[in-house]
């Protein structure tokens, strides 16, 4: 059995010279739900963008047993569902249906299969009647859900989410947490919301200045006040 996400010694520097990742190791098993935390600028988003090949660094990255290389990108992007921080970046089609259908259409599925997946994805996020709606008329919380639906429609093995609760009001946040609890996929969530982490994720990885500084059971890490303080985290 292979690890679903396997990262070994990953280093990456942006074109302007900034070294964002310095030898990161990360292993995630199928079905695990892992939280990725750390201060701003730690490299969380950068790391996440390596998981489907949008960024390429030095070191090894394997996803679902496939090394992240040009020839595997198609399959990898179907297996890793990446949900970005700003749903406006993710909802780029004129209607919800077209947005959710984009991924499946791209995979070359038949019209019937696409329709089935769109329905299923919208149902999974609790918005089955929203297909005809227009993205800019959705509320913040609704946009986040549809953004997740656009990715679920591709039936990925892994869900990677970047700051899912950012900008949501308490009701929207509660709804999203409930949704994440229900979804069966392997999950890696980058977030500042430590209360959500304690509620949903059994394992937490702490990233700071491009390196993994802690990786273990959430309860243990959250009890370590010194660790939290050292890396700008507040429970």
């Amino acid at each position: 059995m292979h690890h679903t996400i396997e990262v070994r010694g990953l280093s990456f520097a942006y074109p302007d010279g900034f070294q964002a990742l310095r030898g990161v190791d990360l292993h995630v098993s199928p079905g695990e739900k892992v939280a990725l935390v750390g201060p701003n600028g730690a490299g969380k988003s950068t790391l996440v963008l390596h998981l489907n090949g949008i960024l390429r660094g030095q070191g090894e990255v394997q996803v679902c047993g496939l090394p992240v290389e040009d020839k595997n990108l198609g399959r990898i992007r179907a297996s890793v569902g990446l949900v970005f921080q700003d749903p406006d970046d993710q909802l780029f089609s004129p209607s919800v249906r077209e947005d959710v259908a984009f991924g499946p259409i791209y995979m070359g599925l038949t019209e019937d299969e696409v329709g089935r997946r769109v329905q299923a994805a919208l149902a999974s996020v609790g918005m089955p009647e929203s297909a005809a709606r227009v993205p800019h008329h959705l509320s913040g919380g609704e946009k986040k859900r549809i953004a997740i639906a656009t990715v679920l429609a591709m039936e990925p093995e892994i869900l990677v989410l970047d700051e899912p609760t950012a900008g949501l009001d308490p009701r929207g946040r509660r709804g999203l947490i409930r949704l994440l609890a229900e979804l069966p996929q392997t999950m890696l969530v980058s977030t500042h919301d430590l209360r959500m982490v304690q509620e949903l994720f059994l394992r937490t990885v702490v990233l700071d200045q491009g390196q993994v500084v802690a990786d273990g059971p959430t309860a243990t890490l959250m009890a370590d006040a010194a660790l939290l303080a050292a890396h700008g985290l507040e429970a």
Binding site: I54, R77, F84, D86, Q90, G103, Y106, M107, V151, M154
Partner: peptide, 17 residues
């Protein structure tokens, strides 16, 4: 960022039919 989101869903420059 939108481009990255499109890539993440399989986009390769060709518009789907």
């Amino acid at each position: 960022r939108v481009h990255a989101a499109m890539l993440a869903r399989g986009y390769n420059g060709q518009m789907p039919s």
